[in-house]
């Protein structure tokens, strides 16, 4: 039984990542639930997706009970932190997308809120955007995040299931770079599946 919150900003591929995890779990015969919210904006609005694997009926994770928060954007990590259980892990992509309402007021990104709030939890920085850029395709940042999440061992899913779920969701010409991104992501957390499991 595992509950994970994926959070970010519209356009970052948050939903795509969550679907792959859910598909992999279902392919293994597990029950998986996912809830996604579509706000008014097509791009740039906040997105949070919750995935639960195991014998659940509610796709919405109760407050303080998520095992992990996979955040694609810093402020969105903070916004969803209340879902995280005591001792839960935050995988944080170091990406800042400035809210327009702050930009209009010429305000800086609220760095202090991020550091203060995330400083109190078990956080692993994952520079997925930079890794993706190094691989020559900034769009694979979300696959880097999947690799990082897999390496924590909390998913309880086999690597093969995840990889085939990714392949089922992607055109063949993008497989190679995504597999590379997945491998790079696995190295980023400094954790290894074997140690945790």
């Amino acid at each position: 039984m595992v509950s994970i919150v994926f959070a970010g900003v519209g356009g970052q591929g948050v939903i795509t990542v969550a679907i792959m995890v859910g598909r992999a779990a279902v392919a293994e015969g597990k029950n998986a639930l996912m809830t996604e919210l579509h706000g008014m904006a097509q791009r740039g609005g906040r997105i949070s997706v919750e995935v639960r694997i195991g014998d659940y009926k509610s796709a919405i994770i109760p407050t303080g009970s998520a095992d992990a928060l996979v955040a694609f954007e810093e402020l969105e990590a903070v916004r969803n932190i209340s879902k995280l259980k005591e001792g839960g892990i935050v995988l944080l992509n170091r990406r800042r997308i400035h809210p327009v309402s702050m930009t209009i007021r010429l305000q800086n990104y609220p760095e202090d809120i991020v550091e203060e709030r995330l400083g109190r939890v078990n956080k692993v920085d994952v520079d997925a955007d930079q890794v993706a850029l190094n691989l020559g395709n900034k769009k694979v940042a979300n696959t880097v995040m999947i690799g990082a999440l897999y390496s924590t061992g909390i998913l309880g899913i086999n690597e093969e299931s995840l990889v085939s779920a990714m392949k089922e969701s992607l055109p063949e010409k993008h497989w190679a770079v995504n597999m590379q991104a997945f491998e790079e992501g696995k190295k980023l957390t400094g954790l290894s599946v074997a140690n945790i499991a």
Partner: peptide
Amino acid sequence: DESIVPRREPVLC
């Protein structure tokens, strides 16, 4: 959770 997090309004793309 008492933290106040700056809003992110939906915006035009």
